[in-house]
Design a binder for these strands. Structure first.
Lengths: 151, 151
DNA sequence: GATTGACCTCAACATTAGTTGAGGTTCTAG
DNA sequence: CTAGAACCTCAACTAATGTTGAGGTCAATC
């Protein structure tokens, strides 16, 4: 049997299909240094197969809410030329899990505070801890936020 | 002693100062139907004092990650003309707490899945549950996301 | 060897959540 | 009653995360 097909690089259509990320988004990720591709003689992109895992990492990180800028930084810690090993990926996942833990803790803290507020309806400034972040989540910023399904 | 000052409506500067939200953002909220104001003879905004609580609700909801569109919908459930009572606010907080609970549960689920992935470094499509949301968080969308401090 | 689907680049548009600035008006304190 | 701070509107700009379309090329199949 031939193993050639298993090593063949992916076209953008294939990568898109398998990852569920649109070609235009893949272009976008490339422009922003999150993924990269070889080119054929005719200038078409050819992706190494581990790019699939890279895109998976991007998607999963986004699901948690990380901005692409941060995801790129994380990916920058992967070995530069060679295909990352399982160990490389595991390290990245571990780091990412830490942030996930923190995020959960922050939300739980917020929820506990909220429990105190429901009794009094006290969503007033100064008095309610919910209104004085100071430590965990940060109060303002230009970034858009979302946690419901976009539909 | 006089109690007049305690009932005087707020100027936009005062509301901004007390809520920590910039005047331009308050304008923006008004344009988008999240808050409203009376006007003086000279066309300047005067906010009822409960607007402070309204803005607090907006900020807090944003901290959890809700988009303004959703926050507006929640606020639309408040009584239309009259100043909301504690009970009105408590109801809103409760509803909001439910979503917070769900969000926490989803992230915990994600974390458990991730634990399974760290051992194998398996952030590959199809095989890893992390890559097949299907149920909880939703995989894609146009919205920007963030959960770190914007800085 | 032509056709057709997949691919290329580049520019413009969409959405969320605002900020900034120009040009003009109002309010309040002295 | 006037100076200056605070306010007004409107338009344009920002940033993140992409999508859409125009105009043109590549590659795999009949």
């Amino acid at each position: 049997m031939t193993h050639v097909a298993a090593h063949r690089p992916l076209t953008i259509g294939e990568l898109s299909e398998r990852s569920g990320v649109s070609p235009s988004a893949l272009h976008f990720y490339e422009r922003n240094g999150l993924i990269e591709a070889e080119r054929t003689a005719g200038n078409q992109r050819r992706y190494r197969r581990d790019t699939l895992r890279r895109v998976a990492f991007i998607k999963t990180s986004q699901r948690v809410g990380l901005p692409l800028k941060d995801i790129r930084e994380a990916l920058d810690s992967l070995p530069d030329g060679r295909t990352p090993t399982k160990h490389d990926w595991a390290k990245l996942s571990l780091r990412w899990r830490k942030e996930l833990d923190e995020r959960i803790a922050a939300l739980q803290h917020l929820r506990n505070d909220l429990d105190g507020c429901i009794g009094c309806g006290c969503l007033s400034l100064k008095s309610c801890t919910l209104q004085n972040p100071a430590d965990e989540l940060g109060a303002s910023g230009a970034g858009a936020q979302r946690w419901t399904l976009p539909n």
